[in-house]
């Protein structure tokens, strides 16, 4: 579904990703962990082509993306991204946020987009908020709108960059619930999170990133029960 091979990414002299190989199967949920600065966000942003990789290749559905030739906007539409700080469009209502991209990018008819948008808002439990502006929502509600907004483009993969880190603790659950539901429905996802309970229950695979390299990749049971790398053991102690 999504495959990165030998991904290298530097910012100036700082090499942040040092040869990442990661293949995500259809309907797989991969949780990405690692200490701050290990390159988790950068890796997600490379998969979304918000950053240009210096070396390596990225394949989506067996098609190797060539950032020079392919239209990046088209490829980005296939890879959804949910941000830590939601990044909702403040000048649009909740429903308008959700239907904007289908109308503008996919040229969907407005009536059809509205039907789709309402369906998605119902899915994330926010039907009653369709006509309010984002500033009137709680953090948890904002993030659920952001998820609906991404889903509206029917992406093949959905990337989450610490979707609950900016939330008050009591609002984390409602967002994780929506994500878990998506996973059950077969959505392919890569999730950067510190929510270890979510990782344990929902992930098919947990990957540990350390200084720009993958040092551990295992199913949750093995990851927590029998990690091979010393850094992983330290990390698990830290978060548990």
């Amino acid at each position: 579904m999504l495959k990165g091979s030998n991904i290298h990414k530097s910012f100036g002299d700082l090499e942040v990703l040092k040869g990442i190989d990661l293949e995500v199967a259809p309907s797989e949920v991969v949780v990405l962990v690692g200490v701050s600065g290990s390159g988790k966000s950068t890796l997600l942003r490379c998969f979304n082509f918000l950053e240009h990789i210096n070396q390596g290749t990225i394949e989506i559905d067996g098609h190797e993306v060539n950032p020079k030739k392919d239209k990046l906007s088209k490829i980005r539409a296939e890879v959804g991204m949910v941000f830590q700080h939601f990044n909702l469009f403040p000048h649009m209502t909740v429903l308008e946020n959700v239907i904007e991209a289908p109308i503008i990018v996919k040229k969907m008819k407005k009536e059809d987009a509205i039907v789709l948008g309402k369906q998605l808002l119902e899915k994330v439990g926010l039907s009653d908020k369709a006509d309010v502006y984002p500033s009137k929502l709680s953090g948890g509600q904002k993030q659920r709108v952001a998820i609906a907004r991404s889903l509206a483009m029917e992406p093949k993969v959905l990337l989450f960059d610490e979707p609950t880190s900016a939330l008050d603790p009591e609002l984390v659950g409602e967002v994780l619930e929506v994500m878990q539901q998506l996973a059950l429905e077969g959505m392919t996802m890569i999730v950067v999170t510190h929510e270890m309970k979510f990782a344990r229950n929902v992930a098919n695979r947990i990957i540990m990133l350390d200084e720009g390299r993958i040092i551990e990749s295992a199913d949750p049971e093995t990851f927590f029960g029998n990690p091979t790398h010393e850094r992983t053991k330290q990390f698990i102690k830290l978060v548990d």
């Binding site: 088209k74 991204m81 990044n87 996919k106 483009m153």
Partner: peptide, 24 residues
Amino acid sequence: GQREASSSLGMTRAQSMRRIVFPQ
């Protein structure tokens, strides 16, 4: 983040300027 969100939804630079950045 506004431009990144619109990019990640598949909008071109021009689209995200016109629909997201300029109105704000």
